[in-house]
Amino acid sequence: MPDFLLFFILWVVFSALGEWAVNIWGSHVYYFIASTQAVDGVNATDFILRVLIPLFVFVMLMLIFAMTKFRRKEGDTSSSAHQFKTNKVYITTWITITVIVNFMFLLHPTASATEAMFNQYLPQNNKNVLIVDVVARQWQWYFNYPQYGVQNTVDTNGNAFLELPVNRKVEFVLRSYDPNHTYDTQVDVIHSFWIPAFGMKEDIIPGETRTMYITPTVMTNTTSNPMLRVQCAEVCGPGHPYMEANASVVSSNSFNQWIAQQKKNQNS
């Protein structure tokens, strides 16, 4: 069957080309990552891409075949000579493959990576974590380091600033309320705590406390790479686009110095 054979050859060739492209670019789909958690996300994306490429090529080739190989000649009004309403092999293969692919995705990366994320929450994995209390209000971030007795950390301009030591797990404790009007329980709204380079975000719900675990792996800061910034990702009113804060990941020595400086600022 020449149609079938041609299709098959083209499908193999283009799928191979696609896989080759994923091999080169697949690990860069997140542009820039700076945490172990983001690596999980990239790996999941990469895996799904690899599996989907042949399926994508299959459908795309068919659309191209429709416009070329199966195209009607000018002036031909007859019906196709190949009339069939079912094909057991094709349908069975199709359904088997879609079911298998979906269950595979469910096991890996969905369940496996989610399991890895849930493990971050286990107490035995959180012995030496740096706790950062994050408070979101319209439209501002507050960062507190309760283990060091430091509150509302700021940069030299006095803007809220998040600094983290490299390769140490961080527990972000997320709350949405107004620290200046704590008596008002109705004041704040849903925000979302997102640092793009860390590959994860968590919504902050008024009246609830959420946690998120991140292990930064790359030393950088907002000025040199704006993907490392604290960004509110859930619309929270007209100030939403301005609800950002600068951040940096530094060595543990620099972090200790910074904490000492913040303490000094606080006491002065």
Partner: peptide, 8 residues
């Protein structure tokens, strides 16, 4: 579509 006479 397969082996039809696709009118563009």
């Amino acid at each position: 579509i397969w082996r039809g006479k696709f009118r563009i």
